[in-house]
Nucleic acid binder design. Structure first.
Ligand SMILES: [Mg+2]
Ligand SMILES: [Mg+2]
Length: 332
DNA sequence: TTACATATT
DNA sequence: AATAT
DNA sequence: GTAA
């Protein structure tokens, strides 16, 4: 699956693999592809693969990918922040095979272009960011961050989202959604920036990868700006966090500030998983004629926004039963 | 045959 | 193109 | 690759 992502065209298998992974939550012995015909998303090609695995103990296509040196290098390069499939392929095609190759490549690039590429820092951070974060450390981070937020402005609620909320023992990063109940979002504009600055001053945030520019203040077309409903996009910061002291590791930290009236859609949107969000959007569009994303739910025909007051209500409005975060884990 | 999630930078 | 879920 |  990862191979297809790196080489392009991952849409083919991703949904099928997701359904297979769903089943790992309910393990059972499968003696033949006949026993999985009832699973959605699986067809003739996957049945053949399952039977091939049962017969040979492996799958030729998977073996080819694992043994491919190119696959190994592309996978490795993709673990660097800012390098995706396309750049990884280009770097490989230009002859790079190791991180040392990339250091040389970007040193040379910066010498020629006379400006920083940002990639040397990404290379330095890579080893730290590749390490998974135990739940206890996620909680430690959130406590420290909330303490700083509280010193700027009291009254914020927060939910830890991402893989942590889906119950994973280890997280790749930390995602926190904030909001102040009942407060006009205009009043809290700039809080994301303020918190990031405070954490930088405290030496806890070491890098800011992205700070969403809250430029989308009022689109010139929003005639209903009198209504206090913030249609604006969420204030988001993608950062790197590190505690003081020995033995501490850089961690990716995402801070999201949502207007109170879209707090719970933001929580659903940032809880994931990726595949769950995709399916939720498809369901909303096809079955309910609605558009779902983390900054709100809208009716497609009149773009009228539907506000909800709890996470349960997000599912009610979409005509779905409650789905526990731990049941949203399917990812290819 | 077509769609496959969607937003921001 | 890369990031986020 | 799968489903509508
Ligand atoms: Mg996460
Ligand atoms: Mg994140």
């Amino acid at each position: 699956m990862h191979w297809r992502f790196l080489e392009g065209g991952e849409l083919s298998y991703s949904r099928s693999i997701s359904w297979c992974k769903c089943c790992t939550a309910y393990p059972r012995v499968v003696r033949s592809s006949k026993e999985v015909v009832d699973l959605p998303g699986l067809g003739p090609k996957l049945f053949k693969m399952i039977d091939e695995f049962l017969k040979d103990g492996e799958i030729k296509e998977a073996r080819r990918a694992i043994n491919s040196p190119r696959f190994g290098v592309l996978s490795l390069f993709s673990t660097i922040y800012g390098i995706g499939p396309s750049t990884a392929r280009r770097l490989y095609d230009q002859g790079n095979r190791t991180f040392e190759d990339l250091e040389r490549y970007y040193n040379e690039w910066e010498r020629k272009n006379g400006k920083p590429s940002g990639m040397r820092e990404a290379l330095v951070l890579r080893d730290d960011l590749a390490q998974k974060i135990p739940r206890a450390e996620v909680e430690e981070m959130v406590e420290a961050i909330c303490k700083h937020l509280d010193s700027i402005q009291e009254g914020f609620q927060h939910t830890m989202c991402g893989g942590y909320r889906r119950g994973k023992e280890y997280s790749n990063d930390v995602d926190i959604v904030f909001s102040r109940p009942g407060i006009d979002p205009k009043q809290d504009r700039g809080m994301c920036q303020a918190l990031v600055t405070r954490l930088q001053e405290a030496g806890l945030v070491t890098h800011v990868m992205l700070l969403s520019s809250f430029t989308s203040q009022h689109s010139p077309f929003s005639r209903f700006s009198t209504s206090s409903q913030g249609i604006d996009t969420l204030d988001t910061a993608l950062t790197v966090f590190k505690f003081h002291g020995e033995g501490r590791v850089h961690r990716r930290l995402d801070l999201i500030f949502a207007p109170w009236n879209v707090y719970w859609t933001a929580v659903v949107g940032w809880t994931g998983s990726t595949q769950f969000e995709r399916d939720l959007r498809i369901w909303a569009k096809q079955e309910r004629g609605m558009k779902f994303d983390c900054s709100g739910i809208t009716r497609v025909h009149n773009s009228e926004q539907v506000f909800v007051h709890s996470e349960e209500e997000v599912f009610q409005v979409l005509g779905l039963p409650w789905i526990d975060p731990t049941m949203r884990n399917a990812n290819a």
